[in-house]
Each structure stands twice: as C-alpha cells, then as structure tokens.
Write a protein that binds this DNA or RNA. Structure first.
Lengths: 213, 213
DNA sequence: TTTATATCGAGAAAATTGTATCGATAAAAT
DNA sequence: ATTTTATCGATACAATTTTCTCGATATAAA
C-alpha cells in the first residue's frame, strides 16, 4: 500500500463525485465494467481527462475492458475520504441547516452530522430529523470529548466568523461554510465554501447573455 | 453603453459574488472606495487577479484611490444579471426545496422563486414560505404563460431527467440542478449544477490528507 | 513644489489544466 | 491463427488561468 502525497487538482476532486454517482447508478443496473470513454460520454468530458482523474485514485483498468465498477467505487471513496465516516457538528438550525440535517445521502459520503447547535433559545431543545438542537455554548466541550473534526456553518453571514472561531477553538479541523461571508481561519485548518450564490452567478450570467441575443 | 460579447471564465464568474458580498458589507460600514489590494487581502487572492476580474465587469478605478464601491456593486450586479429579477419555478418540495424556498437572499441576487411543484399529492396544496405547492402537471402551461426562464431541480436523482425534460418542453431556458445526476439538455439550454457533494469531496479529501500526517 | 507611495491598467511570463497522440494490450471477429 | 478494434497508460502539446512586471497617474508628505 503506497501512500502518495499526490497533488490533486480541485477540478479533479470535483469530478470524482460525479463519476461515483454514475458508477453507483450503473452498478444498480448490473453493470460490472466501465470504460473511461463511456464515463466521458455521459458527462461530455474528454475521455483522457476521465482516465487521468481515475488514475489519481490509484485505480487500474484493463485494455478493452475498462475498469471494474466495484473497485472504482471503493478507490474513489477511499481517495475522497468517504470510506470512513467523519462525525460533524452543524451550527445554525435555520432553513439551510434543516435541509442539511435532512439530507440522508451524506452518510453515503462519509459525513455524519451528529448534533446541531443554535444560539436561539427557542430552537434549542427541539429535534430536527432526529437530532436534538443544543445550545451553542455546549459546542466546545462536546467537540473535544467527541473528537469532532468537521464543523458545518449554516448561520447568517454576520455570525459566521464567531461560530468559526468557536469551532477552531474547540479543535475542529475542517469548516464547511454555507454562509456568504469571507472567513478567517488559522493555518492548518481546512476551509471549504459551499456557496450557492457562486453557482447562481454562473447561471444568471449565462442566461443574461442568451436572452440578450 | 457597450455590450461586449466578453469571454469570461467560470472562475471569474464565481469570484464576483464574493466581491459583491464584501462590498455590500463594507458599504454598510460606510466605506466609499476600495482597492483591489484590499479585496485581494480579504480573500487571499492575487491583487492582479481581482483587478482583472473587476475589469470584465466594465468597472474602472482610479490610481491611488481604487474603485468606488457603489459603482462596483452596480457593475457586478449588472454583469451577473442580478439587476433584473428572474422568475423561477422550483420542482421538488423536499428538504432541499424547502431550504431554497426559505432562502430570502435570492431576491437580492435577482432570483425570484414564484412557485413550487411536486408530484406527491400530499404536498400539493400546502404552502411553503408563502408559496403554494402545485401539481407537477400544471408546470408546462404555467411556465409558458408566465414566461419563466429558470427552473430549479430539487428532486431525487432518479426523477431529475424527467423534470428537466418537462421544463425544457415548457420553454424554460436555464436549469439549476441540485440533484446528483448527470442531465441531458438540448443545445441552447443552460445547465448549472449546484452540487454539495463536490464541495464535500474537496473538504473530506483535504481533511483525510491532514489527518494522515 | 518636489518627492514618495499606492494603485490602476496593460502586457509578458509562469503555472495549471485540459486535449491529442501513440504504442501496448486484451478481447472479439475473421 | 491472424486481424481488427477498443481501451489503457504515458507523454507531448495546447489552451486557459494565474501571477509577475512595469509604466502611468493621482494623492499625500516633505
């Protein structure tokens, strides 16, 4: 088992889940082997690009056959860190927070939201999708005791930095941010922004261009 | 007024909303002018990159002063098509659909979700954030009459393609997809995927790397 | 008034990412 | 058994994106 300190591009990393979804769908349909060409066709990608992406996961295929779907799924999951569940805390039990708590598929992707926090006393004590909403003040203690590595930020922009500081202070190593705010984090902590507005920007800009014609 | 058929990179398009959020925050604080250097510092970007991004919107700055925040906001919004509201239909009144319906800020970004649709008879007729859930069968007729350009797909993966086909048939020009499924669309229709799993993949892969150390 | 400094704008250079080519190989067809 | 075809894996090439460099300009300081 070789553990390479590979340099993976963000682009590759973002394509891998697409392949994974497709592979799972195809496996449900009984497909056993799949070629890069097929995958590429599905997404309108270049076959070589797909091959390179798969290469980074360490998967090997055979000529004329392609890759074994089952092996590929395992390899991609391993590579993404989706083979071992990561426990996560979520802060902000608003709409976005609720949607995330209700998103069943996260488990498949190795993410396990074990508790939700909110500073609003009215929300504290309620249950959302079978997880109790706890007071924010309890986060630091619990995060340490439960060895939580991932913190999900689903609060309004103005509170986001405060929540992040609390999380980082509690030893959380990775922040998944849904708030539209630039966040400051110390060296060594991972920050990933999941911003809908970025995606929306691409959509509306393209639409505007098309409509102008 | 010059209407340039500019070639904008996706990357630039995705950074623009970040600048916009920051600008709005700074304007609230009374800031009138801002330099690319300042913006760059906030996000850890290269100042030149910020300057180039802003250039694509047609904004012009002055040496030693920077850009007028108010002008910049207008320019970015214009460029992204966020100055005129686009009406949108949403299909899928599940968790993700509800979260999107409850996301007040979309209005600020020129997106106005005017109706929600679902095929589940139990959901039809209920109201979510002040919008009635309508039967899916009514979508084509209504979309045409109301000149809807944007369709938001928030259904499980297996129904996504069917919903998209319905939308496209109803004259919808742009699809914002939240389902983890590859979608087929005809030439001329815009497809933008807003997939959380991609963002999650980047996060967990990085976290795995850090934890292995 | 003169000098220093911050910033823009434009173009060149570097880095990254994506695409094309080609030999090797394994299965299928002849 | 031989030829054909699909595919992998590696490498070279092209395009795109980011970063660097530099002259021009507007304000502030001396």
């Amino acid at each position: 088992m070789i553990s390479q300190p590979r340099v993976v591009s963000r682009s590759t990393l973002k394509r891998l889940p697409l392949y994974l979804h497709l592979l799972e769908k195809l496996m449900d349909q009984g497909v056993e082997n799949i070629s890069c060409t097929q995958i590429a066709q599905e997404f309108d990608f270049d076959p070589t690009q797909v091959r390179k992406d798969l290469e980074t996961t360490g998967a090997v295929g055979t000529a004329r056959i392609g890759f074994r779907a089952a092996t590929l799924v395992v390899k991609i999951k391993e590579f993404l860190g989706w083979d071992n569940a990561h426990d996560a805390f979520l802060v902000g039990a608003g709409n976005m927070g609720k949607a995330l708590l209700g998103y069943k598929d996260f488990e498949k992707y190795g993410l396990n939201i074990v508790a939700a926090f909110d500073k609003d006393a009215r929300k504290v004590g309620t249950r959302i999708f079978n997880r109790e909403v706890l007071p924010l003040a309890k986060l630091p203690n619990l995060a340490g005791r439960m060895h939580i590595n991932i913190g999900i930020v689903a609060v309004p922009a103005e509170y986001a930095q405060g929540v992040v500081d609390l999380m980082v202070g509690a030893g959380i190593r990775a922040i998944w941010n849904f708030a539209p705010a630039p966040l400051r984090i110390p060296e060594g902590v991972i920050l990933e922004n999941a911003r809908l507005t970025q995606s929306l920007a691409v959509l509306t800009n393209n639409l505007t261009k098309v409509l102008r014609k």
